[in-house]
Amino acid sequence: MSSSGPDLVCQLDNVQGMVDALTAVRWKRHQDAVMELSEHGVVLIVEETRCLQAKVYLQRELFVQYEYSAQGRPRFGVSLSLFVNCLNTFSVPGRSNMIEIRYPGPDMQLLLKSVDSMDACIYAEIRTRIPDTISWDYNFEPAGSTPLSFTVKSAALKEAIDDLEWPGSSIQITLEPVPPSVTFRGEGHGDLQIDFMYYANTDLLIAFHCDHRVSYRYKYKFLRATTSNIPSSVIRDNRGSKLTIGRGGMLKVQHLVSVARPSIPHPHVDSAGYQQPSRIAYIEFFVKPEEYEEDIQNGS
């Protein structure tokens, strides 16, 4: 044990919520992630081929207990699949699962253990790596004075992106101020266009901000990664996802995942749908547009 004590000791009472949040950024079997600890919480970052990055923000408010005592912001690399599979082991359905997460262990491991039962204990030690430097800084800057963004029901977004699978490799997203609408268009083996009209579908397209027409193309596989593992709780809670187009066509996709304690029916509480408002994990994806595609598109 190091004499200075661990950088972080925290406790979480909803393991499944954390599993859900981390699963949302798991778009393939083996992925390396970087975890960054700070006094504000834990951020997990995954990246692919300098074109796609995802971040999961687990703010300290999600934890029952959060004791942070490091200088600077410790970062370490960890296998995402191993971390998620391991966490999943701690999540026993039908009962609350309190775990303690601690970093670093004597050999720089990430340590997990269940703390809710005296006679049965689950523990894990996950080896960490020195993190790769994040090669490309996904500095997201607004495209102009008015944000170009829209909020759509997560279920509808996922469905639209799933449907765009067959036309294939590249998807064009267009935002149009008049009439206010968002268009997803895929061209490949065939054409498929999905329109969200703001006034026609206010229950699907919840918010819309756009003062000039923009249009960018994104690789289908990257778009798909943003919704392929949306946790079922997001759909169940009928949440929305916010998409913003920034400078240069960088697309930001944000989801909200509940890490609230599973609401146990309580005889003294009348309102059934009570949820702790702050217990949300934020998921962000950044997708780079296909370069020069716009020109080719115009020339053809």
């Binding site: 296998s79 191993l82 391991c86 082991t89 006679d119 049965a120 204990c121 689950i122 523990y123 894990a124 030690e125 996950i126 080896r127």
Partner: peptide
Amino acid sequence: LITLGAEF
């Protein structure tokens, strides 16, 4: 890479 255990 990992040690994962349960003790009853």
